[in-house]
Design a protein around this nucleic acid. Structure first.
Lengths: 199, 199
DNA sequence: ATAAATATGGACCGATTAGTCCGTAATTTA
DNA sequence: TAAATTACGGACTAATCGGTCCATATTTAT
């Protein structure tokens, strides 16, 4: 389907050498695409939106990424990897209460009003796209893991349900933010999580 | 803009009388449209989807509803009204624990895997559609009110933050459901709300 | 220099988008 | 029955959709 990888086929002696080099960076193009998908969603993002944001011609786009859907999958996975890493860092480097820090980070992600891209995509696509649903499931489970490890490092499995509740609470507040709730009400809502903390 | 209402203009003596009667019911057409928007989202729903589901010709559609967007707004408001009424009923008629019943209802709405239409729409549209954001805000605030009245009928204002946390927790679990979490894990997550209950 | 290989820009494609328009059907009032 | 009025079916439009294709540019290996 995709012609992205240099073809290792054609065992003939040739070794032709690479042709014209790209004049774009694949990684930064991917991140540019990520931002567009993040703020507009999958359906509402057009090829023109993407190629403009990535500063790519259509042919380069298709040569490098195969299709809108393939690019999207890559962007989403990239986002997931990145976000989980960030969350782990938050958990590890929080001086005071790591749970509070994680709740903050989840409820007020880099994206600001764009919310969490993975939640956006689960909402938009998961019911009719099992691939997205699976990426989403994995992401959510990882978040639970991180919470559980913080809550009870000795026996994280026992804290799993509480971890999931904390995660869900933070995710729920994303809707408040998108709907335009003032920041202090959201913070106040998050603080209610304290009662979930003790067993 | 819209020609929906019988025009009261033309003060001339005439009083012409109505022409051919409609052979569709506006209310049920609206509900049919609601279902489509609910499960596909706004952008992904086409006019063909709508007219087919509503059993309407395009001309009748535009005569009766004006535009896709206008229809959507009506459907969304209708959904909000309906949903809040249902939630109130759940709160009033729950024999055991009304909070549990509300959490259940919010987390597992009529729509099944379609989730809550309002949350879907907030996620998809609110960041770039202030009209939708406002409908969403009002809806969420009403949910909080219902929770707060159940939590502390004497002084619901004092319970407002807890009410919002419960609401957010339930809303958060919608993402779990869409991502394909098994029902028992979601139920277990909801049960964690008990710790939010006491002051 | 020449051949081989890859990248790029942009024209192009068929399908689909939301929305318009018009001829005709169905109804009420006179 | 005639005039007025509204509804309906469906053809039509201009724009946009995701995706393809090709001629040309740019590179390396010979």
């Amino acid at each position: 389907m995709s012609n992205t990888a240099r073809q290792a086929s054609d065992q003939k002696t040739r070794m032709p050498g690479p042709g014209r080099p790209r004049n774009f960076d694949e990684a930064s193009a991917l991140e540019a695409a990520l931002l567009v998908f993040w703020q507009k969603g999958y359906e509402a993002t057009s090829l023109d939106d993407l190629t403009k944001a990535m500063s790519l011609s259509r042919s380069s786009f298709y040569a490098a990424f195969g299709s809108k859907q393939a690019l999207f999958r890559r962007a989403l996975s990239h986002y997931s990897r990145n976000g989980l890493q960030t969350l782990k860092n938050v958990a590890d480097t929080a001086d005071g209460n790591p749970v509070d820090a994680m709740m903050q980070a989840l409820s007020n992600p880099r994206g600001g009003v764009k919310g969490c891209m993975l939640i956006n995509c689960i909402t938009e696509l998961a019911p009719h796209d099992e691939g997205v649903a699976e990426i989403g499931r994995r992401h959510l489970e990882k978040i639970e893991e991180i919470f559980a490890d913080v809550l009870d490092p000795e026996n994280p499995d026992a804290a799993r349900a509480r971890a999931r509740a904390l995660s869900s609470l933070a995710i729920g507040t994303l809707a408040l933010r998108k709907a335009g709730y003032p920041a202090d009400r959201i913070a106040e809502t998050l603080k209610q999580a304290k009662v979930i903390l003790p067993a």
